[in-house]
Design a protein around this nucleic acid. Structure first.
Lengths: 346, 346
DNA sequence: GTTGACATCGATAACTTTACCGATTATCGT
DNA sequence: ACGATAATCGGTAAAGTTATCGATGTCAAC
């Protein structure tokens, strides 16, 4: 910047103002500066700018697994929306490990990011109080924490459980099992929805029908397969399964099919996530769409709102309504199907 | 830092040295400093550090599509390896648009990132010369550019084409078609491999059998479906198809199956990428594994090597050997199958 | 007692940019 | 012609950290 200023016989401050579209500068000077800037292919040092303005124009994203299409889609839509406002995304994965998550968040805090977006696997709220003490705004996505008044964007997981289970009931299932996810709010809520739907239909909740996620996360597809094995070995074999997410459902379906069972005739299966390949599977998979893209977009919108307001606004909660997508894995009685909009995407 | 220094009656410099494990500091002082640092939950301002050291400990990743599992897997493995060395990843998507890619790279250059990792969709090399002028090291992944001596990590795409096409020939296909990808080096090379394998087997190359990627990227699965439609309308219908990647193959298979064709009996299909769900599809998909995780790991290793060496080392090229994974979509003659190691993952 | 080696700590300057306010000139109404 | 207002530009200081080198103290060796 000094060089340009010297070359043009103006001050460094003038250059700085031109670069930020400050209205102080006359048109002629502005043009001369811009010309020279382009000539030298000059770009201001954003680290120095951050130092004095206190803003980095960086937003941190912490997810449990970048490979999971659900989080990948969120990352993508987040990145798209934030970019339009000049913010960039620095992503990191917690691998579903609370300690790693803490470590990552600590590092991101040191970088003085403008906001954090977190799909947390932490069981307690202490870490988030620390974040608040640092004055760093944050937005929780997908997973909420009890007793924490924070910005949150996610789907109504209670409704997810009810919708999926209710659908299985509608098509005539009597013994409905549930394969759970990791110990976080979505898994808990979806199970509650599952139980409520059963009770509402006069069916009783059987503990044997609820398969918990194991600790060592071995990869959800294989886990789904194992869980289905467990279910099929029961005396009263279930005739419908609601899986926490689609990879689990894939594994579960594979196992059942390999055992010679028919889906949905012998056992119906429904997942959650509505992933892109659901309609291309051995048996196209019914699922609950949780609007992952919109979660990203809403979170981005929230972030921008927060960063544009002088004083931190009070926490906002965005809860999206899940949507039932019926495919063959639950198409047992054609009569009952009102909304069979299997939307083909990508 | 000033506060801590004042509290402890030492200088700011001492604090700084302790924080960076500089050997200058005595054990007792070091402990006192660390205690106070922990007490205040203090973290040094990395923007200021960047300003004076000239390093940001940030690595930029530019990919055409974050949602594509291939790039998602690379992002994940990159992030994992880089984190161990204290580097973080800032990711951005070019949406397969050369102009957007340029814009993104410009922005990343302004941030003075330590290295860029790029899966480029640019047709020319000019932009990369600009990057070199900025002294920012970079590593190309997946896609190389002709006439550019740069660091590169990717798979041997010529071998991919030969391996896939050769496999189709081995199982008895006579009229082998190819659905291409976007106009980048992998697509070009794979087609060359495809042609060479045909010629080597004494089969002739038919232009009608080569379907080019359309400009407006509508989502590869649907594109695969359309391409298959085009192929099936030919007088001499092909009996084998090699698809540029697995999503294309999925779409192609869906269309063929919906038309009542049998896979692989009427038409065999092979893709590339070996994605996690390949073995759960309507017809489990044969594929070429391009070792996406290792691409990320090797790229990360390269980055760390570059950043640890005082002077920029001369460009390194890492070419991985592709691996054939046979599944049902090409299992026509059981005899020929030597390496049917369908590796179940996730 | 002097020398040298080593361990420990600090002073100064620099990195690049921007916020804040003051200075200068031009324009305009009366 | 005068003061007032607006437009345009610049000076000073500050942001939080680190590199470099110099300063001090300790101890052993001769």
């Amino acid at each position: 910047m000094k060089d340009i200023a010297r070359d043009l016989g103006v001050s460094v401050i003038t250059i700085s103002k031109v670069l930020r579209n400050h209205p102080d500068i006359g048109d002629e000077t502005r043009q001369r500066v811009l010309a020279r800037v382009k000539e030298l292919d000059y770009r201001p040092n954003l680290a120095a700018r951050s130092l004095v303005t206190g803003r980095t124009y960086l937003v941190g994203l912490v997810v449990p697994d970048l490979l999971h299409p659900f989080f990948a889609e969120i990352a993508k839509s987040l990145s798209d929306v934030l970019r339009e406002s000049g913010y960039y995304l620095i992503v990191t994965s917690s691998e579903e490990d609370p300690n790693l998550e803490e470590q990552e968040i600590n590092h991101l805090l040191a970088r003085r990011l403008d906001t954090l977006i977190i799909a947390s696997c932490r069981p307690t709220v202490d870490l988030f109080f620390r974040i608040e003490k640092q004055q760093t705004p944050y937005v929780l996505i997908d997973r909420s924490l009890p007793g924490l008044a924070a910005n949150f964007v996610g789907v109504d997981d209670d409704a997810v459980g009810m919708l999926a289970t209710g659908h299985l009931i509608d098509i005539g299932c009597k013994r409905i099992a549930h394969i759970r996810g990791p110990e976080t709010s979505p898994s808990i809520r979806r199970m509650e929805g599952y139980k409520r739907a059963l009770m509402r239909a006069g069916l009783k909740v059987t503990d044997d029908y609820i398969i918990a996620e194991r600790k060592g996360d071995v990869g959800t597809k294989q886990r789904g397969s194992e869980a289905m094995g467990q279910l099929l070995s029961l005396k009263a074999r279930p005739d419908g399964v609601f899986c926490f997410n689609d990879p689990l459902a894939m594994g579960a379906m594979n196992y059942a099919l390999d055992q010679g069972l028919r889906i949905p005739e012998d056992i119906a299966v429904i997942g959650c996530g509505n992933l892109h390949y659901d309609d291309s599977l051995r048996v196209p998979l019914s699922s609950i769409d949780q609007h992952s893209r919109r979660i990203g977009e809403e979170a981005a919108r929230l972030v921008i709102t927060i960063l544009n307001s002088k004083t931190p606004p009070k926490p906002e909660t965005v809860v999206l309504r899940p949507e039932l997508i019926v495919r063959r894995s639950t198409q047992r009685r054609a009569a009952k199907l009102a909304s069979s909009k299997a939307r083909p995407r990508l």
